[in-house]
Design a protein around this nucleic acid. Structure first.
Lengths: 318, 318
DNA sequence: CTGTTAGCGCGTTCAC
DNA sequence: GTGAACGCGCTAACAG
């Protein structure tokens, strides 16, 4: 790789002039400007970004630590983030981590000058870090600044309102405690019931960290008395799991029981599409990148992103 | 962030001594060694990797350009690659690209000193690049050096042998031309037929770039004369698509027609599991990273990775 | 054992 | 208009 010295030598000018031509480019005699550009072309010279980084004290690299369990959702995040980051001449440095220790380790390795900022995505464990230049996305620590959360209360309320409008008044709720948003979900759930003048039945709610299949089993065992006809679950993976379990119990979906996912639904061929709340990864990525570009990062605060109600198109089931 | 100067000042030694203590650490008086370490601790100093990179002319960053269409498969690659790269103190710089222009653009941005090497994954379009330090993984350009390919002939042959052993002697093949490996697939297909003394029926083969659903339609329309009872498709996404189409035609899978995917199968709840050839992402990633670590990269050559036959466990369908 | 010096490649003064 | 000089943070070579 040729350096600025090679170019300046070939063009017969100084390094400073070369630099001027390539950035700014004003206040340079046309003759030497042309000479520089010709030399650049000939040597296929491109400035070394590392040397530039050393000077500017910023690399344009954004670390992204994925602590997401749901690997499907991860891809959505990455796709949207990469798109927006590269549009702003930034680079995405990818890391996976499954627990706090791994997150901290990754953070250590990324914040030695390599990354300007770091995003932590989908951590379902507490990591009370005071680190600067770290943005938490869909993580447990909601009280922290610099974080983006999903509006789980709104999601649950919207979901219930939809289900109720569909004539489903007995809505079961299975949301494991690990999601870190059970209280918000329950809030939205209750709010929807209140607004529709429906009674709250404690027996329809499962928010322990016990397995969802056990919870569903309990529900099904008491199905004659409970008589539930809708089921709210945390995400699309959970949804597919319970659908399989329901069908094994001769319950048809959505006729007998309408399953609703509070975070995205699978759009794969051969997979039952269900109503769901979906979050715009694009909007989220745009928001994050605009944050990153603002210099006054101390005023980031927190941001709550609302999802959209997505209803499966009947016609698409040929 | 504190620099080496701060440490040297606080420890009362020179920068060089600080550097010696942190790397190598031999030939340093114990007293000053302790002083340096204490200062490092106090200032929470960590060497700036960018400055180190400028000197060593290597950043430890590996660019990964995903040109994969199948987004599901991409996650598998990334997961395995990140694991092996981080184990070798390397960083994964992620990029997505959908066509040659985008790949070249990403390549430009990554090879300005930022990345030591670049991986291009799953490009289904020709990109005859002579670039150094670029490794092609599952790409079209098979003749190039520095590339890893999947053994498609072996996959097809293994698939057919399995199907024949299952009593399926009329094996249809739908592999779009875009996969860039149709000739290899056909080779394996024919080889298996020959070895099992079965006739080759041209009418069962669809390798045009026309849509697979059209191809399947043709097959189904002639199903009385063709009487095929197995179907080989390119990947799991194709597989799910054709399964849906087959079921719409009242063909049951796998009873009437056994569908086989030549590249991975979905292991999602609620999704029909099918027999498939699967490639060990872990083995591939390990191979790539070991290549990257070898200094004599000029002898990389090409490598062909064989997949494993994965048969759905009957017991898993509760 | 340790401090000084040079230089990685670049951008930015500051004189000329 | 332009070139010499300095410094970004660090390490390697050379003196002492």
């Amino acid at each position: 790789m040729s350096t600025i010295n090679d170019v300046s030598r070939l063009a017969g000018v100084s390094k400073a002039t070369v630099s001027r031509v390539l950035s700014g480019s004003r206040g340079v005699k046309e003759a030497s400007r042309v000479a520089v550009l010709k030399a650049v072309e000939e040597l296929n010279y491109r400035p070394n970004v590392i040397a530039q980084s050393l000077l500017s004290q910023s690399t344009g690299c954004i670390g992204v630590i994925c602590a997401q369990e749901n690997i499907n959702q991860t891809t959505g995040y990455l796709f949207a983030l990469e798109k927006h980051l590269s549009q702003h001449q930034k680079h995405l440095l990818l890391r996976f981590a499954n627990n706090k220790a791994e997150v901290m380790h990754a953070l250590e390795e990324l914040t030695c000058g390599l990354c300007d900022d770091v995003l932590i995505i989908g951590a379902r464990f507490p990591l009370n870090l005071t680190h600067e230049n770290v943005v938490l996305v869909d993580c447990m620590d909601a009280d922290t600044t610099n974080c983006i959360q999903f509006d789980h209360a709104f999601a649950a309320e919207t979901a219930c309102n939809y289900l109720i409008k569909q004539g489903r008044r007995q809505i079961a709720l299975i949301v494991p405690d690990t999601s870190g948003a059970v209280d918000r979900v329950l809030l939205g759930y209750k709010r929807a019931l209140e607004n529709n003048f429906l009674p709250f039945n404690r027996n329809l709610i499962f928010m322990d960290s016990t397995s969802s299949s056990v919870a569903l089993q309990v529900l099904l065992n008491n199905s004659t008395t409970l008589n539930f006809n809708a089921l709210l679950v945390a995400d699309e993976q959970e949804a597919q799991r319970v659908i399989t379990q329901l069908q094994a119990f001769n319950k048809s979906v959505p006729e007998d029981i309408m399953v609703f996912s509070l975070a995205g639904s699978l759009h794969l061929p051969g997979v039952t599409t269900i109503p769901a709340i979906e979050y715009s990864m694009d909007a989220m990525a745009a928001r994050i990148v605009s944050w990153l570009n603002e210099k006054t990062k101390s005023v980031l605060g927190s941001y709550v992103l609302r999802g959209d109600l997505i209803i499966p198109d009947i016609r698409s089931r040929k």
